[in-house]
Write a protein that binds this DNA or RNA. Structure first.
Ligand code: ATP
Length: 661
DNA sequence: CGATTCCCTCTTTTT
DNA sequence: GAGGGAATCG
């Protein structure tokens, strides 16, 4: 029998076969690093390693799914299904569901999303009487997250040198942590941190995990942060079979605590490590690779590497300066349509990549106008819709009665006479007692004299709400299917009437209600495909994997133009790529330039350019609508770096005070 | 308490 | 240009 296999060059082959001991594959874009991981797992399985012994970390769950499919194609689905593969976060979430109690995490914990995190920070700042103009909640949240990822707790943060503002944020940090714990909620960072604590506190469990996961593999290692690295170090400390692959030039998550130095110092952490370098790029034409290499060569902090194109010469990179974002969109969409009409490509061969989430708007409008199929990846907007958040808050509250943010969100949605005064009284009583609004209300229901005085109408509504939640929880406990529960919930709170009350035109009502129905669809889908469907599991999927849930629910759209951010495009490739909005202020982004992280922006440009296999078009506009007003733009400095042209008179850098003269 | 209106901010990137 | 929050009135 001929075993199906993948083509590898000698260096890749060497990496695949070096199965014992630490291994670093450090190589540039498109050199086949991910292919090494895939082939290596297949190689392990062919050599008698059980799939249960393999743990592979990818950067997104989608990447994990694709890799699993590829491996299934080589060794068969019946074995591939037992591989442990996914993001660090989903691995940790699963581990905590089983073993979180070791660090005091109740089994029915819920994961809060970014909006809930922000609401918690906002509440903390309010409690400290810090105005939002003094400390922006979003800024406080990213500082808190950075601290957490550096393993700095609230008390240590308070001791850190800093100005008044830092101290306020540190105090908000303390309150933030306390609210999450009271609410039995963990944030994304907690998933990693608590896993780490579990591993450190329970040596026997750690031993079992080390025993089970004999072979660790990590893709995109350059974007691993401190806690993730620590988890890897603990898991691999006995057998040291840790294979990591990455490219320091593609490190684009520094703002989230990722530390490139980890990959550059791998041989210090693992002195016996074997290091493999791959120097042939199998993805891009020489023209594309040359332009990308010229850009990245301007970074000072990097490991220089050889990178040769395997492909034959193709067409030159197209540099396209246009009037505004409307012209940019119509020009590009028209070109895509005409290329497909000429039979030279399919819609799925195209990607439009951009720096920020505000950019796709014009492209979406134009794609719809010209009726081309497209897929916008990574858009949070669906989960930010009010009706979707409302329904999810109800579900989170069902799963976790102590979830304060969710309770406060739904307590008067639909309006049921529980107003500002009542809410303040409840929260005040909770804060004073160091408990939660849920417990105060439970107390009041048992004995109205036990807590703050609440208007009778509000009290009646709270009884009804809690009665409904209670009986739904009961049904849940009796194993009623999730989809039924969601439907029943909507009936009980009469959410449809709420949608109709809020919006008066029929079209909006329908659109909003469809959002609700889509959540119901997610639940149906999840119930169907999950091995053991639970509400906790469903919410976990939504928190860690929202994107996939939406995709599953939508009809297959195999031939569609891809639209995504440069961050989301990492690791992917298309025959034809448009890198749009190539402007000072956008790429490099104004804020990055101000923070002195232009090198990371340059890496983003490098990632974007190297996604293209055969045709790369880079575009910019002279003016762009910002906050509803047109603002002048200048082509990105990366254009000059790639082409060797010099800025003309009047060109202005994002971080410069004066135009070039 | 709830509905309406105005006004402000926001745009970095994500698990 | 949208969406959320504060202010204001019924
Ligand atoms: N030995 C090989 N021969 C031919 N093609 C290869 C070989 N190795 C990889 N490829 C192809 O090269 C392209 C890039 O591979 P892969 O995605 O594994 O690279 P990578 O190093 O992970 O890239 P990046 O870091 O840019 O995401 C893919 O299309 C892959 O199929």
């Amino acid at each position: 029998m001929v075993t199906p296999t993948v083509r590898l060059n000698p260096e890749q082959q060497e990496a695949v076969e070096h199965t014992e001991g630490p291994l670093l594959v450090l190589a540039g874009a498109g050199t086949g690093k991910t292919r090494v991981i895939t082939a290596r797992i297949a190689h392990l399985l062919r050599n008698g390693i059980l799939p249960e012994q393999v743990l592979a970390m990818t950067f997104t769950n989608k990447a994990a799914r694709e890799m699993r499919e590829r491996i299934a194609g080589i060794v068969g689905e019946e074995r591939a299904q037992f591989l442990t593969m996914g993001t660090f976060h989903s691995f940790c979430a699963r581990l905590l569901r089983r073993h979180g109690e070791i660090v005091g995490l109740p089994r029915q914990y819920t994961i809060c999303d970014s909006a809930d995190q922000l609401a918690t920070v906002r509440a903390a700042l309010r409690e400290l009487r810090v105005g939002e103009e003094k400390v922006k909640p979003s800024a406080a949240l990213s500082q808190i997250s950075l601290w957490k990822n550096q393993l700095i707790g609230p008390e240590q943060a308070l001791d850190l040198p800093g100005d008044d503002r830092d101290e306020l944020i540190a105090r908000a940090f303390r309150k933030y942590e306390a609210s999450l714990r009271r609410s039995r909620v963990v944030d994304f960072d907690d998933l990693l941190l608590m896993t780490l604590r579990v591993m450190r506190e329970d040596a026997k469990l750690l031993g079992r995990l080390q025993e089970q996961y004999r072979y660790l593999l990590v893709d995109e290692y350059q974007d691993t942060n401190g806690p993730q690295y620590e988890i890897l170090r603990l898991l691999s400390s006995q057998h040291r079979n840790l294979c990591v692959v990455g490219d320091d030039d593609q490190s684009i998550y520094g703002w989230r605590g990722a530390d490139v130095r980890k990959i550059l110092r791998f041989d210090q952490d693992f002195p016996e490590a074997k290091i493999v370098r791959l120097e042939t790029n199998y993805r891009c034409t020489p023209e594309i690779l040359d332009a990308a290499n010229k850009v990245i060569a301007n970074n000072r902090a990097r490991h220089p590497k050889e990178l040769r194109a395997f492909e034959d010469s193709g067409v030159p990179v197209t540099w396209l300066g246009l009037y505004d974002e409307l012209q940019e969109a119509s020009m590009i969409v028209t070109e895509i349509r005409q290329t497909v009409e000429r039979g030279e490509a399919n819609f799925g061969d195209f990607a439009i990549l951009f720096r920020t989430q505000s950019q796709p708007r014009a492209f979406e409008a134009e794609l719809r106008r010209q009726k081309l199929p497209y897929q916008l990846t990574g858009s949070q907007s669906f989960f930010d819709r009010k009706e979707v958040r409302d329904v999810l808050a109800y579900l989170k509250l069902l799963a976790n009665p102590e979830d304060e943010v969710s309770l406060l969100r739904v307590i008067n949605t639909p309006p049921r006479g529980v107003g500002k005064g009542t809410i303040e009284a409840l929260v005040g009583a909770a804060t004073e007692a160091g408990s939660t609004a849920n417990q105060i209300i439970d107390g009041l229901i048992a004995d109205e004299a036990s807590g703050p005085k609440i208007p009778p109408k509000a009290m009646k509504s709270l009884r009804e709400l809690f009665g409904n939640l209670g009986s739904l929880r009961m049904q849940l406990a009796h194993g009623e299917p999730l989809s039924e529960i969601v439907a029943e919930l909507l009936t009980r709170v009469d959410y449809k009437a709420e949608v109709e009350r809020q919006y008066d035109d029929q079209q909006t009502r329908e659109a909003r209600w469809n959002g609700v129905l889509e959540v119901v669809d997610f639940a149906v889908n999840y119930t169907r495909q999950a091995r053991k469907p639970t509400l906790d599991g469903f919410l976990e999927e939504l928190a860690l994997n929202a994107e996939d849930q939406r995709e599953e629910a939508e009809e297959e759209r195999p031939q569609a133009v891809s639209l995504m951010t440069l961050h989301a495009a990492k690791g992917l490739e298309w025959p034809r790529v448009y890198l749009v909005g190539f402007e000072e202020g956008t790429l490099p982004h104004k804020r990055s330039a101000a923070e002195g992280s232009v090198e990371e922006e340059r890496r983003l440009a490098y990632v974007g350019m190297t996604r293209a296999r055969r045709v790369l078009t880079v575009s910019w506009a002279e003016q762009r609508t910002r906050y509803g007003r047109p603002a002048p733009c200048h082509v990105s400095r990366f254009f000059f770096e790639a082409t060797g042209e010099t800025p003309h008179r009047g060109w202005v850098a994002a971080d410069a005070a004066h135009p070039v003269r």
